[in-house]
């Protein structure tokens, strides 16, 4: 499959000639002797929402972990703003503006909501900016303002997901990566979370999204990649993918 260049998105940004914000070229990752990714290439342009869909075990989470520096690829390179970053440590990559809301939320359960959010801004030293980020997160998730002093472990699943996304936003990231944000959430909350995702994007945020609910993800994103067992992903605009019979059969349950 060849790389499909991103169509101009409706968000007003023109990615056409500029280098993509994030680019993965021929990434291969091994867990011990098991090959998890085998030559995965994809790109994310500034201001886009890109969805990464595929079966369980296809390597979606591994891809995100590779981008955020938690796993070092055996082959290939990851470029952020044109600079190779795959040899950097996770904290360096986070400081460059890549935020990761991991699958299963992974909150600090015995810290309050506010403390969890503060952890997201750990690397930042601009107090004014951090305060702004707090305001922004609390505006996006009014619920979290109400519950700021509650222990994260005692929140319901949906609220925890809000904290996870909020925590990622607290670093004021250039690129936000979300791993299964709808997992285990009530339909009404899924709607709310995706509403926030669109809003973050409307304010200029770039988002790379993993989602099992492929239909919802593709309708939210402008482009998508379908990853199948770690191989070169199928790429296309959301409409192309939504209308592809293969994708419909395998991931949309039609």
């Amino acid at each position: 499959m060849t790389e499909v260049t991103a169509p101009a998105t409706g968000d007003g940004k023109q990615p056409a000639t500029a280098a993509p914000l994030l680019e993965l070229r021929e990434i291969a990752v091994y867990y011990g002797r098991v090959r998890a990714l085998n030559g995965v290439s994809l790109s994310v342009n500034e201001g886009e929402i890109v969805a990464l869909i595929g079966s369980n075990g296809a390597g979606k989470t591994t891809t995100l972990r590779t981008i955020s520096g938690l796993i070092r690829p055996a082959k290939g390179d990851v470029r952020f703003r044109g600079e190779p970053i795959h040899h950097l440590g996770a904290e360096r990559i986070a400081r460059m503006g890549v935020a990761h809301a991991p699958e299963g939320r992974r909150l600090f359960g015995r810290m309050t909501v506010r403390e969890n959010l503060e952890m997201g801004a750990y690397a930042r030293h601009d107090r004014g900016g951090v305060r702004e980020s707090f305001d922004r997160v609390y505006t996006l998730f009014p619920r979290l303002r109400e519950r700021h002093a509650q222990l994260a472990g005692s929140l319901s699943g949906g609220e925890q997901q809000m904290v996870a996304i909020g925590r990622a936003l607290m670093s004021n990231p250039t690129l936000l990566m979300l791993d299964e944000p709808s997992l285990g959430l009530a339909p009404i909350l899924v709607d709310a979370i995706f509403e926030v995702i669109r809003e973050i994007n409307a304010r200029g945020g770039t988002i790379l999204l993993i989602e099992q609910n492929a239909g919802l993800a593709l309708r939210t994103a402008s482009r998508g990649y379908v990853l199948e067992t770690g191989n070169l992903p199928i790429a296309g605009s959301s409409d192309e993918l939504l209308n592809s019979p293969d994708v419909q059969r395998a991931y949309l349950g039609m």
Binding site: S182, A186, P187, I188, V190, D191, A192, F194, N213, A214, G215, L216, R219, L252, G253, M254
Partner: peptide, 15 residues
């Protein structure tokens, strides 16, 4: 009101 919501996320499920 409490749960299903307007149903944006459900559209695809019910096709």
């Amino acid at each position: 009101e409490a749960y299903l919501g307007s149903g944006a996320s459900q559209e695809m499920h019910t096709t």
